[in-house]
């Protein structure tokens, strides 16, 4: 019984906060970001260069001033070209210029928590994205490609800030850093790890 009371209080508190939120910004928001990502771990052994071909977008619904839930999408293209090298295999050797690529397209459910109220000049937040990612692995040996496409579980904790363009402005500057992890294995990649930076715009839709 006690827990039910607490639950009802929480719901009432949430509804109250929702009302307050509705007075400031509409609960529905979208964000569009440019993304860069640094590969880590075995991914950097495969393609060590940072990816500057990326983006992310999301749609969120504010449950109250603090909590929101939504969906996130994105893209990152990891790429590295090597000099000509000889790659030994079992009883064989292959001399080739390799181009190693991995395209990642995540689709995640996202829960976010704002560390400041809606009227703050800067609204720091933390979020957790959980979902899946399409992993498109293509390793070119000269002009010959070795490839595989598959889906992998992906989790992405994120910390960032939203900076409204004026008090209660529906438009906000957004910057964040997120870590991406997927238990993805393919040849030399034993797991997918990357540190991703995002910069963009978030706006609330009426």
């Amino acid at each position: 019984m006690k827990s039910i009371k607490i639950l009802i209080l929480c719901i009432l508190a949430g509804l109250g906060a929702h009302t307050a939120s509705a007075q400031s910004r509409s609960p529905l928001s979208v964000n569009f970001n440019y993304s860069g990502a640094q590969p880590l771990g075995s991914l950097s052994d495969y393609a060590s260069k940072a990816s500057f071909r990326g983006w992310k977008a999301g749609i969120n619904y504010g449950i109250n001033d603090r909590w929101s839930v939504g969906l996130g999408f994105g893209f990152n293209d990891f790429y590295e070209k090597t000099d000509r090298m000889v790659y030994p295999d079992k009883n064989s050797d292959i001399s080739a210029v390799q181009q190693r690529t991995l395209q990642v397209l995540p689709i995640q459910a996202v829960a976010s928590y704002n560390f400041a109220k809606a009227d703050a000049k800067v609204i720091p937040y933390g979020s957790l994205g959980i979902g899946t990612a399409n992993m498109n692995y293509e390793k070119y040996w000269g002009e010959f490609v070795e490839k595989e496409n598959k889906w992998a579980f992906l989790v992405s904790p994120e910390l960032g800030i939203n900076v409204p363009f004026g008090k209660y402005s529906p438009v906000m500057f957004n910057a964040s850093v997120q870590y991406n992890y997927a238990p993805y294995t393919m040849n030399e990649i034993s797991s997918f790890n990357s540190l991703q930076g995002n910069i963009g715009i978030k706006f609330h839709i009426h």
Partner: peptide, 14 residues
């Protein structure tokens, strides 16, 4: 990748 290869780089020797 295929647009980023010279003729020499396109070759592999096995």
């Amino acid at each position: 990748p295929l647009d980023n290869l010279t003729e020499e780089e396109s070759r592999i020797y096995v």
